[in-house]
Write a protein that binds this DNA or RNA. Structure first.
Lengths: 243, 243
DNA sequence: AATACTTTGTGTTGTTTTTACACTTTCATT
DNA sequence: AATGAAAGTGTAAAAACAACACAAAGTATT
């Protein structure tokens, strides 16, 4: 087994959009005593240690791959959490002791958020006990994970206003209505359909395909793709994004 | 002496504006051998350890106060640096060994940037060997501090586009021309004076004072102040900032 | 006292962007 | 053949943006 730094960890706030709601991937945490009786059960964000010699970016990618089986998904470092009491709740101390760790040792956690479409993920991957929870239905989490989640949301909302990352929450091919829905859900607002289309039609990196939705009980919508390449070449011209 | 965590540190990128250029506060680092011969000299950003039990925000405030004698200045956490080789340059290893530290131990550094007017600071404070260097004249720095500086600049430019932090680089009372200059220097662009004034006149949190410049060899300009209080109450309405 | 110098402070016009708003088309289902 | 459901499209009024020049108010110089 590879040795890891026991004072640095990475927490990934993995956001998944399912065309209806914004969800976050949470892990079940259950602690049982020696006889197998359940002491408590609650949930955490997805996090892990960093191995010796591993960069934090690589650690975040690894965590993401372990949980979703996906590579090359959008990942952004947004904030680091190092409050000396951040692991100090009663259940957290029990959990750490059970894991032979010193609950009084400060652990620095570097926060990343990831964006993907829930469609892309098979949660049965490696049989992890993880599940999607709508962000507005998340209850009390372990450690300081409610704080980390709310900071991740804040950072993500700020980024989505200024950079084209809405696409990351959709399948590779998507319709304009789906894109509009992404922004409406995340920014908790509504847009006029015609004005929204007028706006995004100015974005040269939003590429219309010669392809339509299939099997829908209404006029099938045209599909689009996001071209990061075109975006990188034109972003100097673009000042305001959505809103 | 208070014990500190030897694996976490805070680096503060302290930006100071002097009405002409954007500067960063750097510290001289000189290593001498036992006989007093100078082995090398170079510069670092301002950073320090975090004491046991101290929050990182408090550590950043402390570093800032130690160097400038100022409290309540604008401070923003922008990124964390934890590459396993970040302290691995030859001079850095010598420096760490001289300081009885293990150069192979990874140190996580949490990056903050601070904004202030150079006018507010007396560098003779506590006789520190620090100085202002224009950001476009900074040479090779110790550790990974060139990377940290450039990431701080990127983050600061991004924030200043979306949040009213330009004021933080000026004295409490300032003129509109000084404010315009801040944005011109930092964004490396020019604005039309009338259009700039039209834009900022819409910001209710920019408060005109019944006071004018004194002792200038030309028509004295009206002074203004930034009201964070008004801003906090009105920011929901504000969508685009400068540019 | 007059003049030169420097920076402040102000308005209009044409262009672009934003906002508000409704109906027809296309497909699957019954 | 009719129904239901979302796609797709244009216009007009309001707001914001970009480009542009000159008189006013003070200090310094003579």
């Amino acid at each position: 087994m590879v040795k890891y730094s026991d004072y640095i960890s990475v927490d990934c706030v993995i956001f998944g959009f399912d065309f209806e709601k914004l969800n976050v991937l949470l892990v079940d945490r259950t602690l049982s005593d020696a006889k197998g009786n359940e002491l408590f059960t609650d949930m955490t964000l997805t996090g892990n240690h960093i191995y010796e010699g591993e960069t934090i970016q690589a650690a975040a990618d690894r965590i993401l791959f372990d949980l979703t089986g996906l590579k090359n998904i959008y990942l952004e470092q947004f904030r680091t959490f190092a409050h000396p009491d951040r692991l100090n709740k009663e259940n957290d101390r029990k959990w750490l002791l059970h894991d032979n760790r010193d609950p009084d040792k400060r652990i620095v956690s570097i926060g990343y958020f990831a964006l993907l479409s829930t469609q892309k993920v098979t949660l049965e991957w490696k049989g992890r006990n993880v599940k999607w929870v709508p962000v507005d239905e998340v209850g009390e989490l372990a450690f300081d994970h409610n704080l980390i989640l709310s900071e991740a949301l804040k950072a993500m909302r700020s980024t989505i206003l200024h950079e084209p990352i809405g696409f990351e929450l959709l399948p590779t091919k998507f319709t304009l209505s789906q894109l509009q829905k992404v922004y409406e859900i995340i920014l908790d607002t509504g847009f006029d359909k015609r004005n929204f289309r007028k706006k995004v039609s100015r974005m040269s990196y939003l590429m219309p395909l010669d392809e339509k939705q299939k099997g829908v009980a209404h006029k099938p919508a045209r599909l689009y793709m996001f071209s990061r390449e075109v975006y990188e070449n034109t972003k100097k011209e673009i000042l305001n994004f959505i809103v």
